[in-house]
Design a protein around this nucleic acid. Structure first.
Lengths: 233, 233
DNA sequence: TAATAAAAAACGAACGCTCGCTCTTTTTTA
DNA sequence: TAAAAAAGAGCGAGCGTTCGTTTTTTATTA
């Protein structure tokens, strides 16, 4: 596993990005080794090259027409690969969705792990929120896909996907509860956690609204955090 | 057009529901008359009966598997109708999605109209937020469908759907701007508007998280409004 | 280092099947 | 009894997938 990357404080998006360990090639290499059972190609070099083509094409087509409506022939003409090449790589269509879920899981787990290493709950909260916000922006197509195409997954994986979101919410909720001085006078912790989470999702679910003063995401993160601390009274 | 229904203040969900004019049958009758061009049946009585079956079935199947994956044969066995009956009613599959968009548009326009009739911006904001929150809960399957299946619509209708959301955001933003006393010291109005909107959507997009202390939606609404007023300093 | 053998990857036509939809016939309605 | 609605078998297109073959890459040998 890769060393943590969000332990700084007052983190900006630019800094985060600089230390973000999941560059495209690294990510595909990780996905290749984590999903041997779903991938037909045995040599990493070829697997990475094909996976890159397949996922780039998927992320171009799916936001326009949806995963179910994307045919493998659409995928062929977008990737330039042949039917055989695609099937050797992913073995069947739904594995595309399963691998996306695995990627998002991988990154989310990493963020939670980083946040847990912060002793101060205020720092931990910042780490968690910025980590999730920035990572989901750097890997926007992945997070977007998983949100909108969870229904295209087989049932077990649908549950995984739902639990992934639940875990993030719980993690936030616990930190917020710790930070509220007089719990009786404040908002319910789960309400604030929900607010934080849905503000993060807002960014990656509606990319057309945020193209892209780039720096604006730092303001966005600050506003979110300020609003949360504001809510503590 | 039906008279407005959200002019009260301190509105609870229960009260709202009592005066909500879009009961199932009324809604289908309205949709029938608004979408003559998409509907083959000429007698309202039969149209309403079939539309009800078709949309109920759609809303049962789609959250599990998605609209593209729902076949007409799935729809037949869920509705008990025949192929002829279904096609006489909706003429083609994508009209299901188009009619959902029309329904949501109809209701949203009504909410905005009601809010605009409030002279006081504070009241107007409450009217808008509660109107949208409560209506989208009463018609949860419709709002949910439109959000997740916008990509299944033909392009023109996709744009309509996007503009519908934009219009809600703009409406909120203007009211919030009015209410901020010292704009320079507060959060950007579009940030708070975005927050409000995504909190409302949270409720109808993740129904599994909110099944259903029913009354809890009043608390939810109050918390949202409180948080917003809180943000004004 | 060049020649060769073995393994892996890529190709793409063809398959069985399911899709959305049509259309003739039958039933129901007013 | 004329018009409207419902039925459901059937159609062609296009789907995901398979598989026999070819091409490329890697490993071995001389």
């Amino acid at each position: 596993m890769i060393k943590e990357f969000t332990s700084n404080k007052g983190l900006t998006f630019a800094e985060f990005k600089k230390h973000f360990p999941y560059s495209e090639d690294v990510l595909y290499a990780l996905l290749f080794s984590r999903n041997q059972a779903l991938i037909g190609i045995r040599r990493e070099k070829f697997a990475v090259r094909n996976l890159k083509k397949i996922f780039r094409a998927t992320f171009k087509l799916v936001p326009k027409i949806g995963f179910q409506a994307m045919s493998l022939r659409d995928l062929l003409s977008e990737t330039g690969l042949s039917m055989g090449g695609v099937y050797l790589t992913i073995t069947n269509k739904e594995n595309i969705a399963i691998i996306v879920k695995d990627a998002v899981t991988l990154v989310c787990d990493d963020i939670v792990r980083s946040a847990r290493e912060e002793a101060d709950p205020g720092k931990a909260l910042e780490c968690l929120i910025k980590g999730y916000l920035y990572a989901s922006l750097l890997l926007q197509p992945w997070f977007y896909f998983l949100y909108f195409e969870t229904r295209s997954l087989p049932q077990t994986h649908q549950n995984d996907s739902k639990n992934l979101e639940r875990a993030q919410a719980t993690e936030l909720e616990q930190l917020i509860r710790e930070l509220q001085k007089q719990p009786n006078n404040s908002y319910p912790p789960e309400f604030i956690a929900t607010m934080a989470l849905s503000m993060i999702q807002e960014r990656y679910l509606k990319p057309w609204k945020y193209k892209q003063p780039a720096q604006s995401v730092d303001d966005y993160a600050d506003n979110c955090l300020q609003l949360i601390h504001h809510s503590f009274r």
